[in-house]
């Protein structure tokens, strides 16, 4: 594709210096690209570095965390080195963000309208009346009934699902090209989840907006994402089209992850588990970070870190050869 991708993250490294002088790498050499209108799922266990990757892209790492290497480009322009003011304009302006907990993400002391208008006027040169009209339109767009009236309500007067819609409206306030949604449905009821996903899906289609969807809910990924990146211990182990990654996972870790999702249709009475636990950031093994838990581990896995290589339509970071990765009968990580 000749056109520059909307977002390109290359060899991103995020480090947290600790008090004892130790430096923890939460994200270690993550690369991915995102086209306009594309939804990329970012999955993995808690602590795999999904949220930190999202925060690094939007420039919201909590100190002392910092980007220690790599680059983030938005439409070809580097945004990881912008000064505070310029980065602030990117945040909310070109990249929106949706957080996990709708109950705590809104300021309880301001009406929904005040928060929307404030955000709109920060990024767009609109008069108060125009900004308010836009706020109403946004609420209508995310499916808030009687938006004209509800705009003057306070957050506590909305239910969880409605608040998440308001938060999506806030993230969309300035028509961003990219939205980073960090666990947007985790705190919601299942039925409300479906509604929120539908809203995101529709907006993505209508506005040709790209989404980075951070979640550990494979159901949400399957519903919404075009491509998915699987993270493990701060690295992407497999990235590819959702269908391939979910139905025909290549990397042993991805296989384990998919195997651990309950499937009501399957007759299996036990779920597959991956033995062991993800390493702590201060004890990431050399070579492939997954090697202590991998059933197909090779000698090389303990010495050298695999880099991503193309396998079919995906990219996989594993030393097993293509033949082995393709074999669907490879019971790489099935525990007893």
């Amino acid at each position: 594709m000749a056109e520059a991708p909307l977002l390109s993250v290359k060899d991103l490294v995020v480090e947290f210096p600790t008090r004892r002088g130790l430096v923890l790498r939460a994200v270690d050499g993550v690369s991915f690209e995102l086209r306009q209108g594309e939804v990329l799922g970012l999955v993995g266990e808690s602590g795999a570095g999904k949220s930190i990757t999202g925060a690094a892209v939007i420039g919201l790492l909590e100190p002392p965390g910092r980007i220690a290497g790599g680059e983030v480009r938005l439409k070809g322009e580097r945004i990881d080195q912008l000064d505070r003011g310029a980065m602030r304009r990117v945040r909310g302006g070109r990249i929106g963000m949706v957080f996990q907990d709708p109950l705590t993400s809104l300021n309880p002391l301001y009406t929904v309208g005040q928060q929307l208008v404030e955000t709109i006027q920060t990024h767009l040169p609109l008069s108060p009346a125009q900004a308010r009209q836009r706020a109403v339109d946004l609420l209508v767009e995310v499916g808030i009934p009687a938006a004209e009236r509800r705009i003057d309500s306070y957050p506590h007067e909305f239910s969880g699902g409605m608040r998440q819609r308001v938060i999506i409206a806030l993230a969309l306030a300035a028509e961003p090209e990219l939205v980073i949604a960090d666990e947007p449905t985790t705190a919601l009821d299942v039925s409300v989840q479906a509604q929120v996903i539908a809203v995101l899906k529709r907006l993505c289609r209508e506005k040709n907006m790209a989404i980075i969807l951070i979640t550990h809910d494979m159901g949400v990924i399957a519903e919404l994402a075009h491509r998915v990146a699987v993270m493990y211990a701060g690295r992407i182990v497999e990235i590819g089209p959702v269908r391939d990654v979910v139905k025909a996972p290549r990397h042993p870790y991805t296989r384990g992850l998919m195997g651990s999702i309950p499937d009501p249709a399957a007759e299996a009475d036990r779920l597959t588990q991956i033995p062991g636990a993800m390493p702590r950031l201060n004890a990431i093994p050399s070579g492939c970070a997954f090697n202590p838990r991998c059933a197909s581990v090779l000698d090389r896995c303990r010495r050298e870190r695999p880099s991503a290589r193309v396998v079919g339509s995906s990219e996989v970071a594993c030393w097993l050869d293509d033949e082995q990765l393709r074999r669907s009968d490879l019971q790489a990580v099935v525990a007893r």
Partner: peptide, 24 residues
């Protein structure tokens, strides 16, 4: 979270500190 979200919306520091944080 709402301060983090306010930052993610790109509000000015002044608005975040004196509008959102101080009032609470």
């Amino acid at each position: 979270d709402y301060i983090k979200f306010a930052r993610a919306r790109g509000l000015h520091d002044r608005a975040i500190h004196y509008g959102h944080a101080l009032k609470n």
